[in-house]
């Protein structure tokens, strides 16, 4: 049985559906990433588990116990806040120890646990500082320490990396993943960064307008998106609008049957696409689209090309290590499984 179960959660703000029949389970030690554009309901989902959002319908269970009606302070879930929410009048020690003091633990026990968790996160030396004397990365760690020191049943992370700069962010992804596995905590991780979600999660839920469009492993969501929205939202993509003739779409060497009447959309994973010379034969099966180089950017290790094709008004943007000239005729190759037509 999953530790955290949510069943048919519904929350409406007037006409806006923040949660529309959401049911997701999280097992022990599992990291669920909830992604979606802003306004998709992902933060509402997180806050409803923490008890800060009163649901219109549905139930939240932790270890089989219905906690839907419990106030936030009685839920035993820890939330990490996007802005860290460290109390500025307390030292790092007091911030981290607060949850333990509320649990009326003996003083020695509190000191030991605070020091253990600060050591685990490698911030022992900050123990007497005030939050205003810490860098963003240090504050992030203190907030994380405060959330895990109470040994919650479920850990909720609201955009934990969004306030850090790009370089630290990549490193901390590994740390969060390692930490979460070490603690074996069921974790809900809300982010708008699909790459972050794919890299860190055991399970990904893609949300849009309050609905879970797809729930699956990162590989499933990336390789077999259920609809156009998921395909487009996950990965680095180009979208081509194509004309439909007699229920069919022709592009390059392929013909697809589609249900749409006038135009269809194709999502191309541009990271997987390659630029080949016009007459080159790739060794693999895939989609080959003839095109012409319209623009070229030098990116250091590679070039980024803007490519015009006959079948669509939209341009393809593909990276390649090889150098082509502007105006040159080429072929764009996309391996099977890296393009989707809707």
């Amino acid at each position: 049985m999953a530790i955290l179960e949510t069943r048919n959660l519904k929350k409406y703000y007037g006409r806006v559906r923040a949660l529309d029949d959401v049911s997701i389970d999280v097992d022990a030690g599992e990291l669920l990433a909830v992604i979606g554009p802003s306004g998709s309901g992902k933060t509402t989902f997180l806050r409803s588990i923490a008890g800060f959002v009163k649901l219109d319908a549905g139930h939240v269970y932790i270890e089989g116990k219905d906690i839907t009606e419990l106030p936030p302070e009685k839920r035993d879930v820890s939330m990490f806040f996007q802005n860290y929410a460290l109390w500025p009048h307390m030292t790092v020690f007091d911030n981290v120890a607060y949850g333990l003091k509320l649990r009326k633990m003996p003083k020695e026990e509190i000191e030991k646990r605070v020091h253990d968790v600060l050591k685990l996160l490698d911030i022992e030396e900050l123990v007497d500082r005030k939050p205003s004397q810490l860098s963003g990365g240090q504050q992030q760690r203190v907030a994380l320490a405060r959330a895990i020191v109470v040994k919650p049943k479920v850990l909720l992370l609201d955009e934990p990396l969004s306030n850090l700069d790009a370089k630290i962010r990549l490193r901390i992804r590994f740390e969060i993943k390692a930490l979460q596995q070490k603690l074996n905590l069921p974790t809900v991780y809300v982010t708008h960064d699909q790459e972050e979600a794919l890299s860190i999660a055991d399970k990904v839920a893609v949300m849009h307008e309050g609905k879970v469009l797809q729930l699956g492993t990162p590989e499933e969501v990336y390789k077999s998106p259920v609809n156009f929205f998921v395909a487009d939202f996950i990965g680095t993509n180009c979208v081509l609008t194509l004309k439909v003739l007699d229920g069919r779409v022709k592009i390059g060497n392929k013909i697809f049957e589609v249900s749409s009447k006038e135009t269809a959309r194709m999502v191309v994973r541009s990271d997987e696409a390659e630029v080949l010379e016009a007459r080159a034969e790739p060794g693999k099966d895939g989609l080959r689209i003839p095109g012409e180089i319209k623009g070229k950017l030098y990116m250091g290790s590679k070039y980024r090309y803007e490519i015009r094709i006959e079948e669509s008004e939209d341009a393809l943007f593909v990276n390649s290590g090889e150098s082509f000239k502007i105006g040159e005729k080429i072929t764009v190759f996309v391996p099977d499984g890296s393009y989707f037509v809707y």
Binding site: D76, A85, W87
Partner: peptide, 26 residues
């Protein structure tokens, strides 16, 4: 900011404790 209050509530703080530990000092 709401998050100061919610963070305390989330860790198990009652309304009275929030008034005493968070609202008044801040």
């Amino acid at each position: 900011d709401d998050s100061y209050i919610e963070a305390a509530q989330n860790l198990g703080s009652s309304k009275w404790r929030i008034i005493k530990d968070i609202l008044i000092p801040l």
